[in-house]
Design a protein around this nucleic acid. Sequence first.
DNA 1: ATTTACTTGTCGATGACAAGCAAGTGAGGC
DNA 2: GCCTCACTTGCTTGTCATCGACAAGTAAAT
Lengths: 234, 234
Amino acid sequence: MNALPLMKGKASLREVTEVLQTALPKTRVRPRISRRTQAERTALSDARMFEAAMQLIVEQGTHATTLKAVGERAGYSRGLASSRFGSKDALFGQLVLHFNTSWTQELANKVGTRGGVQACLAALCAVEDFLSSHSKYMQAMYILWFESISTHNDVRDHLAAYHEIYRSDVAHWVEEGIANGEIDPAVDAECYAFGFCSFIFGTIYQWLVAPNNVDLHKQFEAFRQLTLKTFATD
Amino acid sequence: MNALPLMKGKASLREVTEVLQTALPKTRVRPRISRRTQAERTALSDARMFEAAMQLIVEQGTHATTLKAVGERAGYSRGLASSRFGSKDALFGQLVLHFNTSWTQELANKVGTRGGVQACLAALCAVEDFLSSHSKYMQAMYILWFESISTHNDVRDHLAAYHEIYRSDVAHWVEEGIANGEIDPAVDAECYAFGFCSFIFGTIYQWLVAPNNVDLHKQFEAFRQLTLKTFATD
DNA sequence: ATTTACTTGTCGATGACAAGCAAGTGAGGC
DNA sequence: GCCTCACTTGCTTGTCATCGACAAGTAAAT
């Protein structure tokens, strides 16, 4: 239905801000010659609009975020966001896609080649670290995640697919651990994986609603201990 | 700011449909005399509009749900929902309030006078039962819950307060259990309560995204077993 | 010269509100 | 006790600013 234009390259979490930061120095390197490649122009405007959309979503929610505001905050006309993305839903879809690809890549970096128990713990630490270090980023990402449950479009299907992937990743780690003998074979891998995701989503939800009432580190540490207790072969 | 008109009586989950169902028989009792009290008129139109809004939210999400559609599906003009609630946000706020009061009352009925371990298990069963038996109702309720994280208004504050209440209820049960000696004193009541809520919210979230991929009973049963294992005094 | 990035013009739909209409209410006269 | 008439309240219609969406046009790169 909506032929989504593919993401330009695999952006990492850090790239998002880097594009904007390196953009200004670039104009200093070649002071007046503002003759950018077409690809550079779209990459820049895309990055600026993503950043603007992210800010606006965190500031006033998706409902109050208008395409006009996105375009203008990014430094362009009121029509660019509409023209580039086609629709508000498509912009949010692109953002979700952007977040997901960035996040899965960063997660893969953090987990590395680990498997079994260590992979589970590393993933939990990765989520916890990013919640505190990239707070705004994660906020916008999860606002979009939580909101897309009420729209029956492509975004939701993508989300469902991502959930499946996360769950099966975790389940795979557990199975590795069982094969290694470090995890009790009685543990139901898929069931743990589901609970793992429930914990993360549920915790982030409560954190988003009232950040000051949630001690993220305490909760994550508790879940790590619970995980070790659950896996223990006794 | 927005002087919310108080809820008319404490509506239970069942009342929502009952109001609509008893409304028609009533006109049969006094066939032509459609002379309703003013209070009856607003109660009826309120109930009809809540029902309509709930349906529309489940069918097409909050974003696509218009005040015009709410009024008209409820059997009135396009302007009534707007006139009655003042704004779309206020309507959703009223709905959230309505859901929360109904739900807490129903939960209290299910848990009864139980405390300790039994209260925790009963609450888990209550949530599970309602997810399957009042599926649409819970769907609309949680869509609104998850969505209101991106709106910085009264609704979110109400939610935060409700979360606090839920968490402290659970924590209280655990403390009762510890006092009774049926729960291991090493268990951190607040920490368990938070994990309890995380499980429920996270599970419902994953269920909303892809109902067919989630075996609710299996996950709830698993969490009940995990709870028993966590509480066990060994 | 042609393609591509971006802007401006415009239309139907929506939320919000004001003004008006209709249904319900209550006090006084018969 | 019931009618009537002024008053209150529920509900509808009219209207406007704004938004999403798209078409047409302009500026920039190839």
